[in-house]
């Protein structure tokens, strides 16, 4: 069946920019990379603070089931999201967490970066954590090209914040590079096959 199907779940709490991150990733894949893509979301009634989840399914073929069945990658921006969704992750799938908020990792096979802290330090705005995380996510998985990601980010962010967002993306990509280098050193392989594609 559709072997190119790749499922990503981005999760956290309302106000962290979870859904917009999903939309940007979907537009990068669908509009700029020309792939088939489905982006779905679920959210509570709160505009801020409730749980929030976005899923992106990318494929070379038309997509039947629009949601993630067994995510190939889970990005958790809060401890609660990490605890709730870790069991859905595909065996051998990638767990990425924001270590600013996720203090207890359910597995050692995880990419833990302090996205929120990085956002605070590098851009002065915590709300940029989602863009940093997207940069890391794409740099590691290669699910869309970095150029497409940048184009998708630029078309979605408010006018006047382009530079800040570019800076955030770069921070994320840079952090990913550190991780892949380190992984190669210690011989971790689980994401390499994807990064090579």
């Amino acid at each position: 069946m559709d072997n190119s199907r790749y499922e990503i779940r981005i999760s956290g709490s309302g106000g962290q920019g979870i859904i917009i991150a999903g939309i940007i990733l979907a537009e990068a894949a669908g509009i700029y990379d020309g792939k088939y893509v489905c982006q779905t979301q679920s959210y509570g009634p709160e505009a801020r603070g409730g749980s929030s989840k976005a899923e992106v399914v990318v494929s070379d073929d038309p997509i039947d089931y629009p949601k993630a069945m067994k995510p190939d990658l889970l990005l958790a921006m809060t401890q609660k999201a990490c605890d709730a969704y870790i069991f859905d992750l595909k065996p051998g799938g990638i767990l990425m967490v924001d270590s600013t908020h996720v203090k207890q990792l359910p597995t050692t096979r995880a990419i833990a970066l302090p996205f929120t802290q990085m956002a605070r330090e590098r851009t002065g705005k915590e709300m940029m954590a989602n863009i940093i995380a997207l940069g890391t996510l794409v740099a590691i998985t290669g699910i869309v090209s970095l150029r497409s990601l940048e184009a998708a980010v630029m078309s979605r962010v408010p006018k006047g914040t382009e530079e800040l967002n570019k800076k955030a993306l770069e921070a994320g990509i840079e952090a990913a590079k550190g991780i892949t280098d380190k992984a190669q050193e210690i011989g971790m392989e689980f994401y390499e096959s994807i990064a090579d594609e």
Binding site: G30, Q39, T40
Partner: peptide
């Protein structure tokens, strides 16, 4: 809700 909120090509 799923159809309405699915972003798709």
């Amino acid at each position: 809700e799923v159809v309405a909120h699915t972003r798709e090509k």
